[in-house]
Amino acid sequence: MIIIGEKINGAIPSVARAIKENDADFIQSLAKIQVDAGAHFIDVCASTDVNIEVKTLKWLIDLVQEVTDTPICIDSPRAQAIAEAIPFCKRPGLINSVSGEGDKIEVIFPTIADTKWECVALLCDDSGISKTAEQRLAVFAHIMKRAKEFDIAPSRLHIDPLVEMICTSEDGINMIVDVVKEIKAQYPELHVTGGLSNVSFNLPARRLVNQAFTVLMMNAGMDSGILDPTNQDLLGMIYSTEALLGRDEYCMEYIGAYRASLFGQKNR
């Protein structure tokens, strides 16, 4: 599983306070604990006013890069802000995100076309988030067509099928599972990602729902996730599921993660 560490996000009150107070030590501590927990990308999201967003992204990116070489995931709802922040990164990372909305593809795909940058792509467009698998797959087809135009290989894309709150769904995550299986059947080399905690909003004992959801989605083909890598219970579920699905030869990754105290130590 490709782990995208979610903890440096200005929408989180403690991070918003650190941004306001220029608390560099706090931001860098969040970066280090996520890297130590095995994150493959460090998501950086300012969640500030538009007029200071790029400046804030630069400050955050610079701080993270002072303490780790782990690639940055530039996270913003504004494609132009992402494009302006790319030069701040010392090495290619991950864009979060494009979709079928507005001019996002037109801004981002030409910018990363001849690079090694990877990109999250959301299955929504100007009509919003569709309720059927057919409609989401139509958005997917459009995104893949545009990616091909810019010679962006499927292996550089992380498709987010957009999981919504399970408590408002009539059929659980069955529709999302169908979408994931179909896109992986079409393009086995692309990645499937998403915010793993979105599914449990407004439910008690959210961690249990998140863990069950992770297992189901990994079985469907998810191999990338935006999550808290310091959550040992969730990380243990991910490593054990990969072993059970035959994606971890002789369980070496599972054993290595356990020995590195990434999960499970409290239950020894």
Rank of each mutant, 00 (worst) to 15 (best):
A141P: 05
I152L: 01
G128C: 06
D178M: 13
S130C: 10
I176W: 04
D178N: 04
E182A: 07
P154C: 06
L162M: 10
A147T: 08
G128I: 03
Q186E: 10
H191S: 12
M175N: 07
C124E: 12
K148E: 15
G172N: 00
S130H: 14
A153T: 05
S130Y: 08
K148T: 13
L162A: 05
E134D: 15
V177M: 07
S127Q: 14
I166Q: 12
H158S: 01
I176M: 06
V177R: 00
V177K: 06
E164L: 15
S130K: 11
E149T: 07
Q135F: 01
K148L: 10
R136Y: 02
G172M: 00
S169D: 10
A141I: 12
K145N: 02
E170A: 14
S130R: 01
R136M: 06
D151L: 12
D178Q: 14
P188H: 09
R136L: 04
P188L: 04
A138C: 13
G128T: 08
E182R: 05
R146Y: 12
H191G: 06
A133C: 06
V192Q: 02
R146M: 14
P161G: 02
C124T: 10
F140P: 00
I176C: 01
V180E: 01
Q186M: 06
H142I: 10
D178H: 09
Y187W: 14
Q135H: 07
I129E: 01
I166L: 15
S169M: 11
P161H: 01
A185T: 13
R146S: 13
M175F: 10
C124M: 15
